[in-house]
Design a binder for these strands. Structure first.
Length: 105
DNA sequence: CGAGTGACCGCAA
DNA sequence: ATTGCGGCCACTC
């Protein structure tokens, strides 16, 4: 069964160390550009073993409902070498990851 | 099974 | 700059 959820989880599992992706970007790659919100839902209800700390919102901000709060998520990303300006990633374009076509399938 | 909700995004006042 | 609302899919109650 390959639903939207399966696509999202597969994609998130492939985000490399030290890189990030946005909810909207993930949704678009999975075939529903308007379903960024759904990605958040999957993050909440789905497989918790995935690197959800590398999934952020488009402004470079952190996820509101991350377990332990924004501070916890920021700590993980800092540990991966990502720099912050408060709760916002400094230069998002520098860390944003775009998967190759093979990774999407 | 129907209705409500959500770790978002983009546009309109 | 801030507020409100529609849109998508999966999950809960």
């Amino acid at each position: 069964m390959m639903g939207f959820k399966s696509n999202v989880e597969k994609l998130v599992s492939k985000i490399p160390y030290g890189r990030v992706m946005t909810y909207g970007q993930i949704a678009a790659l999975c075939g529903s550009p308007l379903a960024a919100r759904v990605v958040g839902g999957i993050a909440h209800y789905g497989n918790q073993d995935l690197p959800w700390q590398r999934v952020i919102n488009k402004r470079g901000g952190l996820a509101a409902g991350y377990p332990g709060g924004r501070a916890a998520q920021r700590k993980y990303l800092l540990a991966e070498g990502i720099e912050f300006d408060g709760n916002v990633i400094k230069n998002i374009a520098e860390y944003l990851w775009w998967p190759k076509d093979e990774a999407i399938k």
